[in-house]
Design a protein around this nucleic acid. Structure first.
Lengths: 149, 149
DNA sequence: TAAAATTAAATTGTATGCAATTTGTTTTCG
DNA sequence: CGAAAACAAATTGCATACAATTTAATTTTA
């Protein structure tokens, strides 16, 4: 680098393209998600629900990197839409169990076309997508380690 | 993939690790940014200001992928902190010029240590960081193209 | 076993982030 | 020229995000 301040240039950061890319990807999803009346955060939440059928808020938060401050209102909205129900666990009332409904399962059929449409928007080769995936997960692992000690 | 719904699994998406990674990186910046009393968004804004000294809101927004709805209150905060001043352009009053102050320039000296500290948190090799950078910019270019037609 | 510690959600407060609309200014063009 | 179109910010409304605190339930431990 030419001088000691070059490190502070936006173009020399790795954080910034990550931040920008994440937002742009979410923006590209929007028209597809509008079709099924979900926001991006609601969509990734439903993806977990489609996989697990039932999960408590804490586990859901660990999966999505979100806390109860974000999830509580979001899950109430998904409940209002009829895609999940929220009930306290019988065995441990501290836990709130989020359960997929039939209507929520139905939504999966409408959502099935979205990953394909999005893949068409991100112009990476198969190898590039895989390498990007690997690198992002490596950074995520480092972040996890740093978080846990 | 085993069945047609596998594409809807969170682990098979490229968008999700991107979204999670972005948030985790911002989280890792927080302690360093707390030291100089900036949020992440304020930090990337100041990075542009340190580079350009003066810029209007529209150009700043194009650089940061943010719109006036986000930038207007943020710039007012940075002005309150004394790091920038906001004035309408004499030649075209539609434009609001954001200008770095001496105090804003001083802040750069305190911020100089941050990129190094962050590099230590993201455990990628030089080559991996470069490849990640390249792939993110490729996705950003695709997003730009899609946006502009 | 009862107080202390831990845990899980919910709540509160602050800061984005963005779509859509409004306001004020400038440019275009009939 | 002067109305219409284009443009730049600001504003409004809604949806995250997350830190910090509170509330309620469970587990630990003295």
């Amino acid at each position: 680098m030419q001088n000691k301040y070059d490190a502070l240039k936006l173009d020399n950061q790795i954080c910034f393209p990550l931040y920008a890319c994440s937002k742009e990807i979410v923006r590209m999803y929007k028209p597809f998600l509008d079709d099924i009346d979900l926001t991006y955060t609601q969509y990734i939440t439903m993806m977990v629900m489609w996989e697990t059928e039932e999960i408590n808020v804490k586990s859901l938060g660990e999966r999505l990197y979100l806390d109860s401050g974000t999830l509580t209102p979001l899950l109430k909205k998904l409940e209002t839409k009829g895609y999940v129900v929220r009930n306290r666990s019988k065995t441990d009332e501290r836990n709130l169990l989020v359960t997929l409904t039939d209507k929520g399962r139905e939504l999966k059929k409408k959502a099935i076309c979205i990953p394909e449409k999005m893949a068409g928007c991100v112009h990476l080769t198969r190898d590039e997508a895989f390498e990007l995936y690997r690198l992002l997960h490596k950074v995520l692992s480092a972040a996890e380690d740093e978080k846990n000690g």
